[in-house]
């Protein structure tokens, strides 16, 4: 079972982020870490490969300046190798452009049975790349997986819904997006950290992907960020004094919001 996991490297959310006033996009010139959203996909892939009794997990990523710190975390967790696409022409690439680059990178991985992604990244949050990627690869797509099983050339997915989950079966190969929090990502061991630096890391430029500069970056962007505003301040909450009817009032409040 060979599994490809799309792994995004993002600015550390623990550090204060900054927007470029010119482009209105997040500055990415500092150190990048593996997006926590993608750790669930990496963990899921490692477990699936283990359960299948063999196979490789390959990471695929696009990042500026050949940054590899986040990729190394995934390799330290146990992925076998990685493909990284870096090119100055990729600055400003939107979600669809990203999907094109990732699709080209996935195409470089031989014998991939399954492609896993997060449902969305923690920095961009468009939540559209998994489906775009599936379309570009010509593969079926299953989204919001909370559990994945593989048997008889098919993937059986518990697909999370508002009410519970759907059971979906889909032939391999396919693209599955993994919901955050559904597995517990392992800590990379020290041996894993040491091994990660010698694992194959294939660094590609845009030209290696077969894409042209005008298909990606600012030039290829089908979207434009016209303005950025601060999120509205949270409104003050409602304080219920408990005079013996506090619980009822809270239930009524939640019912009003259709939460219970």
């Amino acid at each position: 079972m060979n599994i490809v996991v799309c792994a995004k490297q993002i600015p550390d959310p623990a550090e204060p982020g900054e927007l470029d006033p010119e482009t209105k996009t997040l500055k990415r010139d500092g150190k990048l870490i593996l997006d926590e959203s993608d750790m669930y996909g990496v963990e899921m892939a490692l477990q699936l490969a283990d359960n299948a009794g063999g196979g490789e997990v390959t990471l695929v990523s696009m990042a500026p300046d050949n940054k590899v710190d986040g990729i190394r975390t995934g390799l330290a967790m146990g992925a076998a190798k990685a493909v990284l696409v870096s090119d100055p022409a990729l600055a400003g690439t939107d979600a669809l452009g990203t999907a094109k680059v990732l699709a080209a990178a996935v195409g470089k991985v031989e014998g991939a049975d399954l492609v896993l992604t997060a449902t969305e990244s923690s920095d961009g949050y468009t939540g559209t790349v998994p489906e775009q990627l599936a379309e570009l690869l010509g593969l079926p797509s299953v989204t919001f997986a909370k559990h994945i099983e593989i048997a008889d050339g098919k993937v059986k997915v518990q697909r999370q819904t508002d009410a519970g989950y759907d059971e979906v079966e889909c032939p391999l190969p396919c693209v599955v997006s993994v919901t955050a929090g559904v597995v517990e990502p392992r800590y990379p061991s020290f041996k894993g950290i040491m091994a990660a630096k010698s694992k194959p890391l294939d660094q590609l430029a845009l030209a290696d992907t077969g894409l042209e500069a005008d298909q990606v970056g600012w030039a290829g962007g089908g979207q434009e960020i016209v303005g950025v505003e601060d999120a509205p301040e949270r409104e003050a909450g409602e304080i219920i004094e408990d005079d013996g009817t506090g619980a009822e009032k809270i239930v009524a409040y939640l019912e009003n919001l259709k939460l219970v």
Binding site: D69, R72, T73, A76, Y187, P188, F190, I193, M194, A196, K197
Partner: peptide, 14 residues
């Protein structure tokens, strides 16, 4: 070095 920094991060999270 890079590995020591990576280890520090993992142990900090652990």
């Amino acid at each position: 070095n890079e590995e020591q920094l990576a280890l520090a991060k993992v142990v900090r999270e652990f």
